[in-house]
Design a protein around this nucleic acid. Structure first.
Lengths: 124, 124
DNA sequence: GATAGCAGTTTCCTAAAGGAAACCAGTTAC
DNA sequence: GTAACTGGTTTCCTTTAGGAAACTGCTATC
């Protein structure tokens, strides 16, 4: 049985600010795919169809739209290499890598959550 | 195919796992308000109209819907106290507090991001 | 000449998110 | 009596997200 660790939660003073921070963060990171796409490109630069293959279930329309959006917000960089035919490489920016801790925590929590959901399904 | 030093890079399995974790996490945390609501109730238990006042811009319909959703997913607890008239108190659960690190990182990042946006607006 | 891959775009569609405003039943305060 | 507060619900509406399928122009390969 786990005891709840009494840890530093945001204090009341910090809370209003934290709320605003959270809302601002979610404003640019919203949607089903953005964080996953950023993570994928942090792991390695990729081409359109490579991303499409890795992120299961995303349609080319949505992928194109999300990539444009992420590029506008400086999370990824799109580079056209003049090979024949041209290669288009998407890669993470320094700025997107400032999300590393967020992504790491979210990934940890996602794993925990999946375990919890599995467990609660066993019980029902 | 990649033949270079594959040992030193994160494995494909690890990448795919992280991606899956992220997607699973976002599945329950999606939307504009959920994380903010969880944070608000981690900070202190509150009544409906107190939350409404704190979370600026949320409509009662959306708030009611989000609270139901969060309760179903065990992120918050709704308790009716038999005062006259009844008081209804929403509070965080142990489970929602497992999001503490995610929320802290997201808040840090949100602050950084707001600074960045402000700066880029000064330049334009 | 047919097929396949690349990097998307276009069209058509449904579902969900989100918001504004009105409303409700009960209670209390004026 | 009437206004206000509580904890929402209801109705109507617009916007956004997201998906399926077809298609495009280009090139390379069989």
């Amino acid at each position: 049985m786990k005891t709840i660790e009494e840890q530093e939660l945001p204090t009341k003073d910090e809370c209003a600010g934290s709320l605003r921070n959270i809302i601002d963060a979610l404003y640019v990171l919203n949607g089903k795919w953005k964080i996953a796409l950023i993570l994928s490109l942090i792991q390695s630069p990729k081409r359109f169809n490579e991303i499409k293959k890795e992120i299961d279930g995303i349609s080319p329309k949505i992928l194109a739209k999300e990539l444009k959006d992420l590029e506008l917000n400086d999370f990824i960089k799109r580079t056209v290499y003049p090979t024949i035919p041209v290669s288009i490489i998407y890669e993470s920016t320094d700025y997107s890598r400032t999300l590393k801790n967020v992504i790491a925590e979210l990934s940890n929590w996602g794993e925990l959550h999946r375990e919890k959901v599995k467990e609660s399904m066993r019980k029902e």
